[in-house]
Write a protein that binds this DNA or RNA. Structure first.
Lengths: 309, 309
DNA sequence: TCCATTACCTGACTATAGTCAGATAAATGA
DNA sequence: TCATTTATCTGACTATAGTCAGGTAATGGA
């Protein structure tokens, strides 16, 4: 990465926070302290549980409690025990509070208007397109990848979603029991690995590495949530698995895949996997791939290549 | 403008402030109160005048004074009378302060790194390009256009810059005295108009309207600072002048221009100006343009078109 | 059934940010 | 030269934001 690139990010940072900051101070500076305004806005039209508010705004519970009391004193919100769990409180806006909420919402709309209004049609379109791209890629860059226990809740949730999707996409449906298995025990370090990708804390993808021989590993369970596709997550999962494979001394990676998973096949082809004859009897597999010479290619010096555009 | 567009802006706002905000809290949350950190950073490697700091950070003078005192107590900065004007104080960082400054600078670098590092080469390039576009267009949208007295300091500065540029670009140089004049008196409402474009308070362009007959006006002094080109400012200046022309009842606009000003000619052509025979004897003019039927075209209902891409 | 946990609240703090009304000294313009 | 303006400082405030240590009641699992 070049210095020039960092400069660009910093310039962006400055301009954007300058422009959005000023206007969004205003958006929240509604004659009401920032904390209260944020809270009021976060409660929303439909109300919310105090617990969720605390997490979303990451506020100290005492502080939040006091803020809520203040809103209640001003007649903007009311709270009562949540049905189901009497420990949690549910807050809702009063009609007066809803009016304030609308005012805040309008302010945030005004920001958008004041940003777009001075521009011509063409510039406006370009700004919006660029904003969408920045937003998408910044979200992509906030995706984290980490190893987890394949038996953990998040991992199991990913695998279930993965199986459900296979069931849907394979012409003949999918029954995990008939597929070549990957026992959770095989996907635990140091031999194997199970990793998941998270976006804002939520799991949005997974991948696994299984060791099949002294120098041969197998890629399994590669999946990305439909909502998170096009962010280059599969590429990063694959890279992470390859990196681990190298670390534990593997030199060859194999995998099988179904003919209806086109993106997957494109991904593997892009990353140097070559099609080989069947190495197993997985009834759902139509294509088998192999990548040799991992160590050479994934040495620390080599630069990243590719990544979904 | 569509609701969908506002939604995009708001989504962008949320994601960007979420991601940059968190990291830039960190960037300034250097174990030091935000105000102090901002001030320390703003003083910069080379020091600054207290007056400028006050304006840049828009702080209350008492508050700033106290913050400075605090930095001095911590041995991070020193201040002395500015040479030249003994009222103003000049603040400079001590070696220790400079070290802190570097730490802050590094943090801001880290933000850039953490944003770019998870992305692949291709995504990184796209993010940077999109950031540049957003930055450029947000700057463009913060350009304001307002009428000023043509004799004001800012107006005169623009005109001087304009003349200097003509001098440079015309094959035969440029002498204001030989050109067809526009007396400042002619560029004052209600008859004429002189407008300037500002970016961050600084004048970056101008334009004028002169009334030549009961229904005929003339566009003069159209100029945009080289540093602010490609932001659609000329287009907006022209639109503002046309709008005023309509308001004061003009129906025809004329203008002349030199053959070396290609962007200008493209601008006029794009906006419905047609080349006509010479209507004056300006020795620097090679092309004469006219736009008829202003009232019809620039009615409040009609949408903006064009704008520099 | 009981005990750890969870969700929330209260009281007692502290730190940060910011405002406002003068006071002082240098510079500026008539 | 003298009144005004400018740049800064000081003292005396207030508001906001946030922390922390306990307390109470409901919940859930052993």
């Amino acid at each position: 990465m070049e210095t020039e690139q960092f400069q660009q990010v910093r310039r962006f940072n400055r301009v954007v926070t300058g422009r959005i900051g000023v206007l969004s101070d205003n958006y929240l500076g509604s004659g009401r302290p920032l904390g209260e305004a944020r809270l009021l806005f976060e409660i929303g039209r439909d109300g919310a549980n105090v617990r969720d508010l605390r997490e979303r705004l990451s506020l100290d519970s005492g502080y939040l409690s006091r803020l809520l009391r203040s809103l209640e004193r001003q007649g903007l919100a009311t709270s009562q025990r949540a049905s189901g769990d009497a420990r949690v409180r549910r807050v809702a806006l009063t009609p007066k509070g809803r009016k304030e909420w609308n005012a805040l919402d309008r302010r945030s709309q005004d920001l958008a208007v004041s940003l777009l209004a001075p521009l011509g049609e063409r510039q406006r379109e370009r700004l919006l397109a660029a904003m969408e791209e920045v937003e998408r890629l910044m979200r992509a860059s906030s995706v984290t990848i980490e190893p987890v226990d394949p038996g953990s809740v998040d991992a199991r949730r990913c695998i279930e979603a993965y199986f459900r999707e296979l069931e849907e996409r394979f012409e003949a449906g999918f029954d995990p029991a008939r597929s070549t298995s990957a026992d959770p025990g095989e996907l635990v370090p140091p031999a194997g690995l199970f990793i998941i990708a998270r976006l804002d804390g939520q799991p949005v993808g997974c991948g696994a590495l299984k060791v099949n021989g002294r120098r041969v590993g197998e890629i399994k369970r590669m999946w990305v949530a439909p909502s998170a596709r096009g962010m280059g997550i599969a590429q990063r999962l694959l890279e992470a698995l390859e990196k681990h494979a190298v670390e534990i001394g593997l030199d060859v990676l194999q995998l099988d895949t179904n003919r209806s998973l086109n993106e997957a096949r494109a991904l593997y082809a892009r990353n140097g996997y070559a099609e080989i004859p069947p190495y197993n009897t997985n009834p759902y597999a139509h294509h088998w791939y192999e990548k040799r010479g991992l160590k050479r290619q994934n040495s620390p010096e080599s630069k990243r290549i590719g990544g979904r555009p």
